[in-house]
Simulated assay, not measured.
Amino acid sequence: MNKIFSILFLTIGLSLYAQVGINTAGPNAKLDVNGDYNLRDKLVVLNATDNSLSQGTNDQILVSQGEGYPPIWKTLRIPEYEPNKFYLIFNNSFSDRTGVKFTSAEESTSASSRSTTFVKGADFSTFNRFKKIASLTQPINVYSTESKTYFQFETVVHADFAANGTTDSSVDYACGIFVDNKLVNLRQGNLKASSAANPFLTHNQIGIIENLTKGQHTISVACSRLKSYTTTNVTLGIGINVATNIDSFIAQSSLKVDVYEVPQVFNTILD
């Protein structure tokens, strides 16, 4: 009987007063419990879509939708990881049709100091007349102190050489992959004139960097025209066509980034 009266008094109290506190003289909600709370039966919330009461399902949790909105049930999915083993945490690919162009007057002075300039960890500011390929500059996130990040860059190098050019007519170029403006990988190439006008080639480049610091990083790709041989007034395009024998679709650049990590902090995923 005492229990019945207690429930009645609590119900009457909730209906008469805007806020009720248990073990607190200053409640901050309609029902403010200052202390432990045991729930022996069920917990239901309002389903705003059909105004029904929802109990959720096994292993679901309540997630706030913000002030003025009822909480909703969410399924918590935590992937199972084996300790000390790498897992693919981030995977994405990017493309660019803008590319970069270089005239004969835009050759880099780095051509004469390649062995000292093109070193791992060198800052982008030291690379003379390197141009970044705009849409390949992208952010990535690393969550573990143990990681391996792989890069695969592909583009087309195009030059408007005249037909029947001599085999000694060519242009050296270079492309580098940078993380936070620090060089992690660089490849050089040479495009030669041929019996056909406006030759082009496909440039492929793969790089890796280990154990980036935890947090956000910026990936970028930059290229340069290094040196010309027995040729003048030739435009070089990297990731963009410089003549009509190919178009921007064929010449476009792509960058694929894969981040493998040994998980340390699990970022929960909610459906």
Rank of each mutant, 00 (worst) to 15 (best):
F5H: 01
I7N: 06
I7Q: 09
L10G: 03
T11V: 08
T11Y: 00
I12A: 12
L14V: 05
L14T: 03
S15T: 09
L16A: 11
Q19V: 03
V20C: 08
L31A: 08
D32R: 09
V33D: 07
D41F: 05
V44E: 13
L46V: 15
T49M: 02
Q60L: 00
G66Q: 00
Y69S: 10
Y69L: 13
P70A: 11
P71L: 08
I72M: 05
W73T: 04
R77M: 11
R77T: 15
I78T: 11
I78Y: 04
E82I: 02
E82V: 04
P83C: 03
N91C: 05
N92A: 13
S93N: 13
K101W: 04
E106N: 08
E107T: 12
F118E: 14
V119L: 14
V119N: 12
G121D: 13
T126E: 13
R129T: 14
F130R: 08
K131E: 13
A134T: 15
L136W: 07
T137R: 12
Q138V: 15
Q138K: 15
P139H: 01
Y143L: 06
S144G: 07
K148D: 12
Y150P: 02
Y150I: 05
Q152C: 01
E154C: 01
T155F: 00
V156N: 01
D160R: 01
A162G: 10
A163V: 03
N164R: 06
G165R: 04
T166S: 12
T166V: 01
T166W: 02
D168I: 02
D168S: 14
S169T: 11
D172M: 08
Y173K: 07
Y173Q: 07
Y173M: 03
Y173H: 07
V179Q: 02
N181T: 13
K182Y: 09
K182A: 12
L183Y: 07
L186H: 08
Q188F: 11
G189Q: 06
G189A: 06
K192T: 12
S194Q: 10
S194I: 00
A196H: 07
A196R: 09
N198G: 00
T202M: 08
Q205Y: 03
G207I: 09
G207M: 06
I209L: 06
E210P: 01
K214V: 15
Q216N: 12
Q216Y: 03
H217W: 04
V221D: 06
Y229C: 03
T230A: 12
T231L: 14
N233R: 05
V234M: 02
L236Q: 07
L236G: 02
I240W: 04
V242S: 04
N245D: 14
N245H: 02
I246P: 01
S248E: 12
I250C: 01
S253L: 02
V257L: 00
V259A: 08
Y260E: 08
E261Y: 00
P263W: 05
V265D: 09
F266L: 14
L270H: 00
L270A: 07
D271Y: 00
D271W: 01
